[in-house]
Deep mutational scan, measured.
Amino acid sequence: RSVMTEEYKVPDGMVGFIIGRGGEQISRIQQESGCKIQIAPDSGGLPERSCMLTGTPESVQSAKRLLDQIVE
């Protein structure tokens, strides 16, 4: 099973929602998708923050879907 890492951008203002209280939302996304998510510590003043998604292609797709649901 191939593991890939893909960069994915999320709106900087939504990072708090994505991480959730005490990190529980991001933990849930990682468990549900099976994908490891690393969010950049800051956006460098840009409107979007970079996330690194690491996992199988299916888990990366799944994580993107879950992130999109939060961001919308």
Rank of each mutant, 00 (worst) to 15 (best):
Q25C: 09
G23W: 05
T56M: 04
C35K: 00
G13S: 15
V15L: 10
I37K: 00
G16Q: 11
R65S: 11
D12T: 15
L46D: 13
S43I: 12
D42A: 10
I18H: 02
A63Y: 00
R21C: 04
S33Q: 01
Q25N: 05
A40P: 12
V10E: 01
M52A: 09
F17N: 15
Q25R: 12
D68A: 14
K9Q: 11
E72R: 15
M4N: 11
E24S: 11
S43D: 10
R49Q: 07
L66A: 07
V10L: 12
C51I: 14
V71D: 05
G44M: 13
R21V: 05
S62N: 13
R49T: 08
D68R: 12
L67C: 03
G23A: 10
Q69E: 15
S27R: 14
A63C: 15
E72Y: 13
P11I: 03
E72A: 15
G16M: 05
T54C: 06
M52E: 09
Q25F: 02
E6I: 08
A40G: 10
V60S: 01
G13H: 09
Q61C: 14
Q61F: 11
P11Q: 05
Q69N: 12
T54Q: 08
I39Q: 02
S62A: 11
S27G: 12
I39F: 15
L53P: 00
G20V: 02
D42T: 09
S33V: 02
E72G: 15
E7M: 02
S50D: 12
S43G: 08
E32T: 12
V10T: 02
D42K: 11
I18Y: 03
S59D: 09
P11R: 07
L53R: 00
S27Y: 07
E6A: 04
K64M: 08
T56W: 03
L67K: 01
G20W: 02
V15Y: 04
E6V: 08
G22A: 09
E32N: 04
C51Q: 00
I70R: 13
E48A: 10
D42Q: 09
C35S: 03
I37W: 00
R1C: 13
L53W: 00
E58Q: 14
V3T: 13
I39N: 01
Q61E: 15
P11C: 04
S43Q: 15
S27D: 10
M4T: 08
G13E: 15
G34E: 08
D68T: 11
F17W: 13
T56K: 11
K36H: 10
G13V: 02
G22C: 05
V10D: 01
G55R: 00
L53Q: 00
L53H: 00
K9N: 03
A63I: 02
G16K: 11
G16P: 15
K36N: 08
A40Y: 06
E32H: 03
L46H: 13
G23L: 03
T56G: 06
E72N: 05
D68F: 09
R28D: 12
K64L: 02
R49I: 04
T56A: 10
G23D: 09
R21A: 15
E72Q: 15
V71H: 04
I19E: 15
C35P: 00
G22W: 03
D42I: 07
R65A: 14
E7R: 15
E48G: 10
G55C: 00
R65Q: 12
T56V: 10
P47H: 09
I19N: 10
V3L: 09
K36R: 11
L53E: 00
I19T: 12
Q38F: 11
I18C: 04
E32Q: 08
Q30G: 03
T54D: 03
Y8K: 04
I19P: 03
V3Q: 14
I39V: 11
G55S: 01
I37G: 00
R1Y: 14
M14Q: 06
E48V: 11
G13N: 12
G45Q: 10
I18Q: 02
G45D: 14
L53Y: 00
I26H: 04
S43C: 04
G22P: 03
F17L: 13
E24H: 15
R1G: 05
T5Y: 06
I70D: 04
I39L: 07
I18G: 03
V10R: 01
T5F: 13
M14G: 06
G34D: 06
G44Q: 12
E32F: 03
Q69P: 06
F17V: 13
L53D: 00
S33P: 00
R1D: 15
G45C: 11
Q31W: 03
Q31Y: 06
D42H: 10
F17R: 15
C51N: 00
S59N: 09
E32V: 09
M4H: 07
G13M: 11
R1E: 03
T5A: 14
M4L: 11
S50G: 09
R28K: 11
E24C: 07
L67G: 01
S43L: 05
G34H: 09
M14S: 11
R21P: 11
S27M: 12
G22D: 14
G44C: 12
I29V: 11
Y8R: 02
G22L: 05
G44F: 05
A40K: 09
S59I: 02
